[in-house]
Design a protein around this nucleic acid. Sequence first.
DNA 1: CTGTGTGCAAAGCTTTTGCACTACT
DNA 2: AGTAGTGCAAAAGCTTTGCACACAG
Lengths: 152, 152
Amino acid sequence: MYNLLMDQIVKSSFEQVDIAALLRRHGINPTAQRLIIGRAVFSSFQHISADQVLKMVNEERNCVSKATVYNTLNLFAQHKLVHEVIVDPSKVFYDSNTSPHHHIYNEDTGELIDVGEGELEVIGIPNLPENTVAAGIDVIVRVTNRNRPILN
Amino acid sequence: MYNLLMDQIVKSSFEQVDIAALLRRHGINPTAQRLIIGRAVFSSFQHISADQVLKMVNEERNCVSKATVYNTLNLFAQHKLVHEVIVDPSKVFYDSNTSPHHHIYNEDTGELIDVGEGELEVIGIPNLPENTVAAGIDVIVRVTNRNRPILN
DNA sequence: CTGTGTGCAAAGCTTTTGCACTACT
DNA sequence: AGTAGTGCAAAAGCTTTGCACACAG
């Protein structure tokens, strides 16, 4: 069964080779499932959620379980291969662009897009609590559609 | 049963009166459950999550259901009585301070604190997508404890 | 008695855990 | 054989939905 999966992967173009190398460079053992998931994450979509990945990888046949998708995306995030963007309590987005940048989130459509380079800047360094180290800054600009129904 | 609850509430000090007035001012009908939940949210804690509210309101006796706590907190947020702070996919914090300000989140302890006035500033206005309006900007400074175990 | 509003049990999500299995040493 | 690492079914946890009940007109 693994051999079947592996065949399917090795057979295809060099994108996969790159992804395998990418995983290795980040200290992740490139298994069949991880290559499939990696391909989904690094394909055209810039921001993708776990359930979108799940749908993509199982479009043709069921070969990766829900749990593995979630665990693998967490693994990628821990190894800084992707960046978690938390904008909605019920959905984490994974961003294949790991260079620091900010986001615009449309609360009506659920769409997440990047803020252009240099359009937004954060100035100042806040006093951090005792014995803590900064791990990153997330800026989310929340927008809504014009003409949305009025809140009663 | 409602009379019992109401008695318990009316009996107590003027904090509750203020909360009832606060709810009315925001167009929310002040029912027994909402007053109890309101009291929890506006008491000493500045940032509180739904399950913390649930614990607080049911400390003495079980009188408010899980669903009602969640629905009521959503209601408060919709009516701008509190501000939702989304920092962790599995937990929404409700902030009783609705004036614009930013947050520091400790990923190790789950602690959420305010950035002091003027310590951090966001400069610039990004290009928003067609037909959308800005609804707010959230800035989250993520910190971790020093001495945390090294990522392998 | 009718219609609006409220509260909650049950259902529906997303995510994590614990264990079987694999594959190296 | 032993050990570290991997994948997934089942469990857990957070949130929403749909319906029964309460209350005002």
